[in-house]
Design a protein around this nucleic acid. Sequence first.
RNA 1: GGCGACAUAGCCAAGUGGUAAGGCAGAGGUCUGCAAAACCUUCACCCCCGGUUCAAAUCCGGGUGUCGCCU
Length: 306
Amino acid sequence: MTDKTVYIISGPTAVGKSLISYYLAKRIGGEVVNCDSIQLYKYMDIGSAKPSEREMGAVKHHLYSLVEPDDNMTVARYREMALETIDDILSRGKTPIVCGGTGLYLNSILYDMSFADSEADEERRAELEELAEKNGNEYMHQYLEALDPEAAARIHPNNLRKIIRAIEAFEYGKGVLDLSECSMNPNYDFRFIVLNMEREWLYERINKRVVRLIKLGLVEEVSSLLDKGYDPSLPSMKGIGYKEIIGYLNGEYDLVDAEELTMKNTRHYAKRQITWLKRYDFARWVEIHKGETVGDIVDRILDYYG
RNA sequence: GGCGACAUAGCCAAGUGGUAAGGCAGAGGUCUGCAAAACCUUCACCCCCGGUUCAAAUCCGGGUGUCGCCU
């Protein structure tokens, strides 16, 4: 371990990232830094499966419950906060343990990404969305092609969201860059662990977790968010578990359907996360087997990097 | 036992003579400012046997199975 060592504990949802990070932190005197887009929000504790009070009390946890659910979060802001937090932890002689499965946020720490030249502008975005509404995806894709052919070539014509972002980015600066043009963040020595387990077992855990979250009061949590006035269209409220419960509360289907939908969407999410994480050829994959204790897994993580 | 209906992918399902829609699930993938988001790719010789026909998931006969009704 060096004085710039930063652990990253990632993996699909429900593999046990939080628990393992917690034990790892206890073992090496680390502090946990959240890298989960939904756990960043306040009042969204049950649905986002944040670490328990006890865990948060025993080990320092950063960037949890930080912003209001209607806050306009972006990767750029996340990056800023995360790097600041990591530097602070290092300056106190502790080891940061970045824990989470939001791939884009992970990238923002891992790579020397620059967001400075492409500010997001609400008004311009609304304009572009309207233009798209009127003329369709194909039109927007051609529009982008005229501005930034390279970006257009990378973005599928149906992916309107990315097309609009690329147009914005182009108008503000150098456009949307490809990650391959970035180098690794040179300020840290990363120890990047991807936790994984047999697909079937993971799906089983996901299903059980959804049942548990509902038992713990997810429905109440969601209705209290709605009572506070948070709009279902907010990105935070589109989180898995939240949007499905909102549908139930609106009478679109019953609770059993909401539960099944949540399970399904969580499974899909886990799969996308695994796909994303495969890109990091420098990551060490730790396969968790049934019957292993958290201690065993932490041992293996520590052994990995000698 | 009789009569009738149906049998298409893991599930739902379209197709009634011209070489198997679609949805869901599953699998794989893309990714620099909404990322728990957005988007893409992929997945069947149509219950079995025989017949008619240039051509059958589609028509005919016989099996088998499921469902319904009757006795």
